[in-house]
């Protein structure tokens, strides 16, 4: 590692924000599972590391009736895997969390980190997208909320401005009787980045929400396709139709992990399987 940095563990959010704006070469550390690799590969030059794990705001894991579940930036992914509440209310999120990386990494990797890293193939965003997750951002001049589908701007890029920090996300409360699921394909059964990952959610009113990763520069919420499905009404026939139609909504690339052709095919298969699962018809 060529970076030479100071390490700072702030007592409160204000202290953190003051530190964050001092130098553009300040990087935020939560789980570190991505940051440490960037440092090791000398892909970034860090002069300051801001460890936000001690901030109470980042440690929140709280469900409020009507408001939903707020997850602080220090909450690790295994907490989601083990949470009975998440299993019950947000099954797709639970499944995505369980599919992410390896057990040890999930003990360190944070939910918010998985979002802020803005990898096109990250597992959690598709699931969080279908639940209309909101990103809670704090800056020196106050705080703002951004819908997750507006958060990503490109490969490894987000709307975060210099001096801003994501302290938590909020996942609105789902309606009773909802169903959701996350399905993914990878190169092996063991820990791997997703070749394609598809989250789908069915609300009691028949409306469907779809999120997908690794088929575009950012994780996507497929609003247009959702509308088409909702108009047709979710059924086995619609699932089969949607599996064909999705090819008009995504533009996967060929890279070292997969060909575009296979990604396109798997997006189709995973969408169909996801929708059928929501209908209680697992293939």
């Amino acid at each position: 590692m060529l970076s030479r940095f100071d390490y700072f563990k702030p007592h409160n959010l204000n202290e953190a924000m003051q530190y964050l704006v001092k130098d553009e070469k300040t990087f935020v550390l939560a789980g570190g599972t991505d940051l440490m690799i960037l440092l090791r590969r000398n892909l970034i030059d860090a002069r300051h590391i801001l460890d936000i794990k001690s901030l109470p705001e980042t440690q929140v894991f709280e469900f409020v009736e009507g408001a939903g579940l707020t997850i602080g930036a220090s909450v690790v992914v295994n907490k989601i895997v083990d949470s009975e509440l998440v299993k019950a209310k947000y099954p797709a999120f639970n499944e995505a969390a369980a599919a992410l990386a390896s057990f040890q990494l999930r003990n360190r990797a944070t939910v918010v980190g998985n979002i802020c890293n803005a990898s096109p193939g990250a597992d959690l965003p598709p699931a969080l997208l279908v639940f209309d997750t909101v990103v809670n951002i704090v800056g020196l001049n106050g705080s703002r909320q951004v819908k997750l589908h507006e958060f990503f701007t490109g490969v490894k890029r987000t709307v975060l401005q210099p001096g801003e920090l994501v302290v938590s996300i909020t996942i609105p409360e789902p309606e009773p009787g909802e169903k959701s699921t996350y399905l993914r394909q990878a190169r092996l059964r063991g820990h791997d980045l997703a070749t394609v990952g598809v989250a789908s959610r069915l609300k009691p009113d028949g409306k469907v929400a779809l999120g997908i990763c690794a088929v575009a520069p950012t994780p996507l919420r497929l609003f247009a396709l959702e509308d088409q499905i909702s108009q047709r009404g979710l059924s086995e026939e619609t699932a089969v139709w949607a599996a064909q139609e999705i090819k008009n909504h995504i533009r996967p690339i060929t890279d070292v992990r997969s060909s575009a052709a296979y990604r396109l095919h798997m997006a189709s298969v995973l969408l169909k399987r996801g929708l059928l699962k929501l209908l209680g018809k697992e293939g």
Binding site: R187, L188, R189, G190, H191, D192, L193, V256, R257
Partner: peptide, 11 residues
Amino acid sequence: FTDNKIPTMKD
């Protein structure tokens, strides 16, 4: 190991 995988216990 990110892209040159070997079998894990799951495999």
